[in-house]
Design a protein around this nucleic acid. Structure first.
Length: 260
DNA sequence: ATGCCTTTGTCTCAAAGA
């Protein structure tokens, strides 16, 4: 089965682009971030017309995540555990049954954390602590589990075309990178790096200053696989060409193919 | 560089994004 993640930067503005990509890529499960829509306003029908079941966890104006699945979404859970006072819609998780067993999928939109020096950066790090604690519980279940989405973390210098440009940015702070490593080190396989160690492997190009034309990209959308999911990994890819489409998101889809 | 674009809602400006 093919499982993908994509920060679409607004479902209202991106609906035609997302539908075109779904018809081309045909993922079995798609994790969407930054839907920027409340649940009641999310356009479920066009996705259902393509054969997808839809579950959303949105809020007004910003953030918001969604799961699309050709097979039924079971045990849908909205919100990241660990802080009942957190109002930001950044996590949704569900189970999908396959002929070869169940796969659990966690779709996340990790806080950006900029600008440094505001409460946004400690919120990012606290959110990452919560994510790590939740992931540890899931790993203890010893089932195929994928944690994928927009992590807003550049893991290594090679994951940026111009790493020096990001030294003062929350995405590339040592604390952000350390928190990401701590999550992976619980026992996940980072899928893209399991498939390629190539530089110039990016998932985001800013709208500004001709970043796409200069290939001034960064790799911040990641797919983490539990050991049981990692054993099923067949291939992975980044749909870079989508960035050149009309009305693109600033992110592109990342996907894995599992033997499940 | 308080810049560069793009989206959304408060809507012709501000806020957020990365």
């Amino acid at each position: 089965m093919k499982i993908a993640t994509w920060n679409i930067n607004g479902v209202k503005a991106r609906i035609d682009t997302v539908l075109a990509w779904l018809q081309e890529a045909r993922p079995d499960v798609a994790c969407l971030q930054e839907i920027k829509s409340v649940d009641e306003a999310f356009p479920c029908q066009p996705f259902e017309d393509l054969g997808y079941n839809v579950a959303t966890h949105g809020q007004k104006g910003f953030n918001g995540v969604a799961l699309l699945s050709k097979r039924p979404l079971e045990d849908v859970r909205r919100g990241l555990p660990g802080d009942d006072g957190d109002e930001q819609a950044r996590y949704i998780e569900a189970c999908v049954s396959t002929d070869r067993g169940a796969v659990r999928v966690g779709c996340l939109y990790l806080p950006n954390g900029n600008p440094l020096g505001t409460d946004k950066f400690p919120y990012k790090l606290a959110w990452m602590d919560r994510l790590r604690r939740h992931a540890a519980l899931r790993l203890a279940e010893e089932q195929p589990f994928l944690l994928l989405g927009d992590y807003n973390v550049i893991p290594e210098p090679k994951d940026a075309r111009n790493p020096q440009d990001w030294l003062g940015d929350a995405l590339f702070q040592p604390e952000s990178r350390q928190h990401f490593r701590a999550l992976v080190n619980l026992g996940f396989t980072e899928a893209v790096r399991a498939c390629t160690d190539a530089a110039d492997t990016y998932t985001f190009w800013d709208y500004q200053a001709g970043a796409w034309q200069k290939n001034n990209g960064i790799r911040i959308d990641h797919v983490l696989l539990s050991p049981q999911a990692g054993d099923l990994l067949a291939s992975c890819g980044i749909d870079k060409h989508v960035r050149a489409w009309e009305k693109p998101s600033d992110h592109v889809p990342v996907w894995v193919e599992l033997a499940a």
